[in-house]
């Protein structure tokens, strides 16, 4: 079989390749959880253009997360990196941050009535993700999902108590 045949055969095989393949597991459920409480895409596009103020809590949380991950990454493999410990550290740090914000805003009226139930729904989402992480502690997608839910809780508390128009 010569080079010409290869080029022709390869082209034919490329043209007949199936452009679609369905994943074995349902990916939508995880996407839906990750997008809970996300603003509408158009609103986000406007907000990104209009709002360049630093988000102190998000930065602090990210720095802390990087710190925790780096600390764990620097440990030699022989010390058996424990994903469960990382999840516990993340949860504990988030709880402290959440409590601090709730105390800070306790005397301030909230902008909406149902923010606590939204916070509760996010708590349930975090519990479900942590349950999944117990089975698969090193799953990066789940860790990111947990981090995203935590961040949404912080954003929610800040948004209902200190909307951006009030800070202007």
């Amino acid at each position: 079989m010569n080079k010409l045949n290869f080029e022709t055969d390869l082209r034919e095989q490329l043209e007949s390749l199936n452009k679609e393949k369905q994943p074995d597991r349902d990916l939508w459920a995880g996407i839906e959880i990750a997008l809970t409480n996300e603003d509408a895409p158009n609103d986000m596009a406007h907000e990104v253009a209009a709002n360049n103020r630093p988000r102190i809590y998000a930065v602090a949380a990210s720095i802390l997360l990087v710190g925790v991950l780096s600390w764990n990454a620097l440990k030699p493999v022989s010390q058996n990196f424990n994903g469960t410990e990382l999840i516990a550290a993340l949860s504990s740090q988030h709880q402290q941050q959440k409590n601090a914000l709730l105390v800070k805003f306790q005397d301030q009226p909230a902008l909406t009535q149902n923010w606590e139930s939204q916070l509760g729904e996010l708590d349930e989402a975090a519990i479900a993700i942590k349950a999944a992480l117990k089975q698969d502690p090193n799953n990066v997608a789940l860790l990111k999902m947990l981090q995203s839910v935590h961040q949404q809780q912080i954003d929610l508390i800040e948004r209902v108590h200190a909307p951006k128009w009030r800070q202007l």
Binding site: L27, A34, E38, P41, M44, S148
Partner: peptide, 13 residues
């Protein structure tokens, strides 16, 4: 693929 659809929501605007 999951990451694509999470980020797509933020980019589609």
């Amino acid at each position: 693929a999951q990451e694509v659809f999470i980020q797509l929501w933020r980019k589609i605007g």
